[in-house]
Write a protein that binds this DNA or RNA. Structure first.
Lengths: 342, 342
DNA sequence: ATTAGCACTCGATAGTTACGAGTGCTAACA
DNA sequence: TGTTAGCACTCGTAACTATCGAGTGCTAAT
C-alpha cells in the first residue's frame, strides 16, 4: 500500500509529465508542487515507487516517467474528473439541443464535438438494443428503371439503397414485393428478419411474385447494412499531434485500422463497465502501445446502449477527458430520449 | 533548344531520380543508361542543363535533381504514357463492368481503384452538365412524424434527406407540396429550380398549402446539396509514403484541406485541357510544393464532363500515371454512357 | 567536340569533449 | 527512525573535429 505522500508524489509526477512530456526529477517535483519534504526525501520515495513498478527511468540517471501500472493506479485511485467549464457546457447543450433530424446526424455531430473538446480522437456508436425491430419498409419507384428501398427500425435508423430494376419487373410486382415484406417482416426483431430473409421470403416470392426473384438479392443487402454496427469517428488528425516518434508505416497501419469498421468495433466492443480505460498494452494491439482508450456507455433505457470512446496518448489529460465524457453522456442520453419520445 | 543527347540525359536523370529519390551524378548516369559518352561529357551536359534551369544541385558538389522546369519539359516533351499491363486492365474493366446501381458508387469505386493502381491519391468528380435538369421529386411519409424527400436529376444523382414533420402537417399537406414541386420544378434546369425555390415556390405554398410553410426550409437544403459538387477521394494514406520530411503541422493542414470539399474542388476546378499537370508551385498553394497534380477529364457527351485527378509527389511516375489515367477515363466514359442509355 | 585527370567542395559519419540534470548513497541530524 | 545535505557518479545531449567519398568544374591532351 502506498502512503499518502507517495500517492501525492505519483499524482504530481503524472500531472507534470502529462503537461510537459518530459521525465520528471526530484527537483522539479520539489519546485512545482507543494510536497513538504526535501529533494532527497522525494528521491527516496521515487526510488520506492520505481521498485514497486509505478514509475520508470528512461536511462540510469534520468527523471521518472509513469509506467502503465502507474497510470493504472492513477486512474483507479487518484484522478478526479475535472468540472467542465461553462462555455464548453454551453457548446455541448447547444449542439445536442439543436437539430434532431436523423439519428446518424446526432452521432456524427457528437463525435465531431467530442474530438474538438478533447483534442483527441472520438468514436461514437449509436444505441444498440438486442430486440431492435423493423418498423418500416418502403419501395419507391423513382422512374422506369430505378427503385429506392427504405427500411426503418424502432431505434431510429433509416437506411436506403437505390438499385436498378431488372427489365422484367413491373410496377405491380413491386407492390407485391412490398406487401410481402410488410406482412412478413415489419414488426419483427432484426434477428428474426435476417432469418426469414434466408428461409421464408424466397419461398413466398417464388410463389406470389416470381418475377421479382431477380431483385431479391439487391434487397437483401440493405437489410445486411441495417444490422451492421454504425460508428462515427472524428478528429483522426489529432493523432498526428502525439505520434511524432511513430514511423510512417505504423502510422499508416493505424489509420487503416481506424478506417475499418471491423477493426474499430473490435477495439471498442469488449467493454461492459460504465467507465473503462485501457492503457497501452492493455488494448491488446501493437499499434496502440502509446495510446489510451477511454470508453463509456450511455443508456437510453429500452432503446438500447451506445458507446462513446476517446482515443488519445497514454499521457492523456484524464481528468479533463473524464469530465467531458461524463457531461456528454448525460446530455446525449437526454437528447436521445427526447428523440425517441417525441 | 536542347540537343537529342541533352534530352536523353534529362530523361534518364528524371527516371533515375524518380526511382531512387537520390541526386543523380554523371557516373550513375553513365552506368545506368545507354548514353554514348564519357562521364566528363555528361558532366558538361549536366552543367549546361543546369544553367538552363532544368536541373539543380542540392549542394555545390552533389548530383543533380530535376527542377520544376525540368519536370515541365519532361512532361511536355519526353514522357510517354506507359501501356497498362493486362492484369491491371482486367481489374479496371471488371470493376467498371460490374455493379452500376448508383452514380455515387461508381465514382467512389473509381477513386478507390485509381488510388490502388497508382499508389497515389485519387480524386474523382462526377459528370457535371450545365443544363442538368431536375427529373424527379418525391415525398415519402415514413411514419407519423418523419418524411423522406428524394430528388433526382437527369445525370443520375439521387439525393435524399429525412426530416421531422412539424406537428401541424397532415398527409394531405404533403401531397399538396409534392404536387406543387412536381408541377413547377420537375423538368427544369437546376439553375432555374434554385431561382424558383427562392421566388415562386414560397408564394405558391402560402397560397395552396400554408400549413407546409414550416417544412419548406428543410426541403430547401436538399436542393442545395444536389447542386453541390460531389467529389470522391481515395488513397489519402498514400501521401504518408512520400512526405517523410514534412512536419506534422503541415501534414495536418494538408489532410484538413483534402477533407474539405471547398478546398478540394478549388484545387481541381481550374482546368480545361484534356490532360493537365500542375507541378509543385504551379499548384499555387504552399502545402503542395512537393506535389504534382495530374488532372484529366472524361466526357459523357451531353451528360456532361467529369474530372479525374491524381495527387502524388513531384517525382511521380508520370508515364505510368498517364497510362492508367488514359485507360481509365475511356473505360469510365464507356461505363457511364451505358449507365445513362440503359 | 570529347575525354582523362585532378584539385576541390561539402554532406554524412564517427569520434571526442564538455555540460548538466538527475540519481543513489553516505553520514549527520531531529 | 525518518529526514536531509552533500557528493560522486551516470548518461544523454550538443557542439566540435577529423575523415571519407561521391560528385563537381576545369585544364590540357586527343
Amino acid at each position: 500500500m502506498l502512503t499518502k505522500r507517495q500517492m501525492i508524489i505519483l499524482d504530481r509526477l503524472i500531472r507534470l509529465y502529462t503537461s510537459t512530456s518530459l521525465p520528471i526529477g526530484s527537483k522539479t517535483l520539489l519546485e512545482e508542487s507543494e510536497i513538504d519534504a526535501s529533494s532527497a526525501t522525494i528521491r527516496n520515495e521515487l526510488n520506492y515507487l520505481e521498485r514497486l513498478g509505478f514509475i520508470q527511468k528512461t536511462h540510469s540517471s534520468s527523471g521518472r516517467i509513469p509506467s502503465i501500472k502507474g497510470y493504472r493506479f492513477y486512474i483507479d485511485h487518484l484522478v478526479r474528473p475535472q468540472e467542465v467549464t461553462p462555455d464548453k457546457l454551453d457548446v455541448i447543450s447547444q449542439m445536442l439541443g439543436n437539430h434532431v433530424e436523423e439519428m446518424d446526424d446526432i452521432m456524427h455531430q457528437s463525435a465531431k464535438l467530442l474530438s474538438e473538446l478533447t483534442n483527441y480522437t472520438a468514436i461514437v456508436l449509436g444505441p444498440k438494443a438486442d430486440d431492435t425491430r423493423l418498423t418500416g419498409f418502403r419501395l419507391v419507384a423513382l422512374n422506369d428503371h430505378h427503385v429506392m428501398a427504405i427500411i426503418q427500425t424502432d431505434y431510429g435508423t433509416i437506411e436506403n439503397k437505390v438499385f436498378k430494376l431488372p427489365k422484367s419487373i413491373r410496377e405491380s410486382d413491386l407492390i407485391k414485393v412490398a406487401n410481402i415484406f410488410n406482412h412478413h417482416l415489419v414488426g419483427l426483431p432484426l434477428m428474426e428478419v435476417t432469418r426469414k430473409l434466408q428461409r421464408d421470403i424466397p419461398l413466398l416470392l417464388r410463389k406470389y411474385a416470381s418475377n421479382a426473384i431477380d431483385m431479391f438479392i439487391n434487397l437483401e443487402t440493405i437489410f445486411d447494412e441495417s444490422t451492421e454496427e454504425r460508428y462515427h469517428i472524428s478528429g483522426k488528425l489529432n493523432l498526428l499531434d502525439f505520434t511524432e516518434n511513430m514511423d510512417r508505416q505504423k502510422l499508416k497501419s493505424l489509420y487503416s485500422l481506424l478506417d475499418n469498421s471491423v477493426g474499430l468495433t473490435h477495439l471498442i466492443e469488449k467493454m461492459n463497465q460504465d467507465f473503462d480505460v485501457r492503457i497501452g498494452d492493455e488494448i491488446n494491439n501493437d499499434l496502440f502501445t502509446e495510446f489510451s482508450l477511454v470508453t463509456t456507455t450511455y443508456n437510453v433505457s429500452k432503446y438500447g446502449k451506445g458507446v462513446i470512446a476517446i482515443l488519445g496518448p497514454t499521457s492523456m489529460a484524464y481528468d479533463e477527458t473524464f469530465g467531458v465524457l461524463d457531461v456528454f453522456r448525460k446530455q446525449l442520453t437526454h437528447t436521445l430520449l427526447n428523440y425517441y419520445l417525441d
